[in-house]
């Protein structure tokens, strides 16, 4: 390019300031670098502050929700949960979803409930996953879809929560979102029953008997042994 550099009508990468002496160039790029460094430092500090802030918003919401140290006030709880949920606080999202689901402190709205449950569920929150699955089962706030429901129950059941275990068992028993399988069904119901879940105990007593019960119990014991 050097051979027709003199002829150029066009911009050269060097502007007036850059054409200055190398020392001047260094001064200027130093100023820019310092400024950028400061911007980045300030930005990271802001994030750190807001993390603690968001957590405190959730905690405030939780206090109002359970009436811990303050008079119980569901509307006030919703306000704080929302503030934190909008900053992607997973517990707050799940809690806000529940408020919409149950109509606590806010008008019942299943679509909103699903929206917040999903945000939390996608972040791995088991309680929200369970409730989202339930919405898919019942078709509240979202189109009924047993496959999706089963998928989310399977995620949620990793928590070891008896209610989720019961629902997984139910899916297998009814063949909802998964192929019908009594043995698998029994396994999950029994796991819930062992935790004292009354519905699971009743389910087993009423619906499993004779050969089915024996075979299922055998399989369950093998499962327990294999787990140990």
């Amino acid at each position: 390019m050097a051979e027709h550099r003199n002829n150029l009508l066009v911009v050269r990468p060097l502007g007036a300031i850059e054409k200055a002496a190398p020392g001047a160039k260094r001064i200027l790029s130093g100023m820019v670098a310092d400024a950028l460094h400061l911007v980045k430092k300030t930005a990271s500090k802001e994030i750190a502050i807001s993390d603690a802030q968001v957590e405190s918003w959730y905690q405030t919401g939780a206090k109002y929700s359970f009436g811990r140290g303050v008079p119980q006030d569901h509307a006030e709880a919703v306000k704080w949960f929302r503030k934190a949920a909008e900053q992607n606080h997973v517990m707050a999202q799940s809690s806000l979803g529940y408020c919409y689901d149950a109509g606590e402190g806010v008008a019942k709205d299943y679509v909103e409930a699903v929206k917040w449950y999903r945000k939390a569920a996608e972040q791995g929150h088991h309680f929200a996953q369970h409730n989202l699955a339930l919405c898919y089962t019942t078709g509240q706030g979202v189109k009924q879809n047993y496959e999706e429901a089963f998928r989310w129950y399977c995620e949620a059941v990793k928590s070891g929560e008896a209610k989720t275990q019961f629902n997984v068992g139910g899916c297998y028993f009814l063949g909802q979102g998964v192929a019908m399988n009594y043995i698998e069904s029994y396994k999950w119901l029994k796991l819930a029953a062992e935790q004292g879940d009354k519905a699971a105990i009743e389910f087993i007593t009423r619906l499993f008997s004779g050969d089915d019960l024996r075979r299922s119990e055998l399989a369950y014991r093998e499962f327990c042994l294999s787990k140990k």
């Binding site: 300031i17 200055a20 002496a21 020392g23 001047a24």
Partner: peptide
């Protein structure tokens, strides 16, 4: 002397911007 000159030069350029 060089540093002061550099700053003068930059100041002149900055004034034109």
């Amino acid at each position: 002397t060089q540093t002061d000159k550099d700053y003068e030069e930059l100041a002149a350029a900055a004034d034109k911007k």
